[in-house]
């Protein structure tokens, strides 16, 4: 037990403020304190990526970030990517191309993929496989995940072109 710290963060656009022990892990903060249960716990050692969120513009594994490190940060989780009426193209593509089965890795997988496509809007298959290698899926064998991300990239690029 340590002295509690005063933490402020913005999660999916909403300002949050609370007292927490510095040892509290960000995934715990999100899931237990803020009831944001999209990100999951799979390994607690940074290997599986089920807990992936975007923190200050970077993909991070929330299971190995102390809440103290996330003080003052801006965080996006799967819940912040789309709404039921306006889904993110990746959310659509994963369903369309059977890019998920049990769904446990999916929030982290899609959240990571949003960053991948921001960093590289037109990735090759190899770049997708490398860029997603921090997220483990036990069900799909990745083939349809790669397909989903490719399809979403095409969709997003077409929408961008149409807007220009």
């Amino acid at each position: 037990m340590g002295k509690k710290m005063h933490i402020q963060m913005t999660v999916n656009g909403k300002a949050e403020e609370f007292l927490a022990e510095p040892r509290e892990l960000l995934i715990y903060t999100l899931r237990e304190r803020l009831n944001i249960t999209g990100p999951h716990i799979g390994c607690e050692t940074s290997h599986c990526g089920a807990c992936t969120v975007t923190l200050n513009g970077k993909s991070v594994k929330a299971c190995t970030v102390f809440v103290a490190q996330a003080d003052g940060s801006e965080i996006t989780t799967i819940e912040g990517l789309g709404t039921p009426d306006a889904l993110h193209p990746l959310q659509v593509a994963f369903k369309e191309h059977h890019g998920l089965q049990c769904g446990y890795c999916t929030p982290g997988m899609i959240t990571r993929a949003t960053k991948l496509l921001e960093e590289n809007p037109n990735p090759t298959e190899e770049e997708i496989r490398f860029g997603m290698a921090g997220n483990i899926c036990r069900c799909t064998g990745y083939q349809n995940i790669v397909k989903s991300i490719k399809a979403a990239a095409a969709e997003m690029n077409a929408a961008k072109e149409a807007a220009e």
Partner: peptide, 12 residues
Amino acid sequence: KRVEDARFTQGK
């Protein structure tokens, strides 16, 4: 297409 996917892709 799978009916399960709506909730899984939205973190629900």
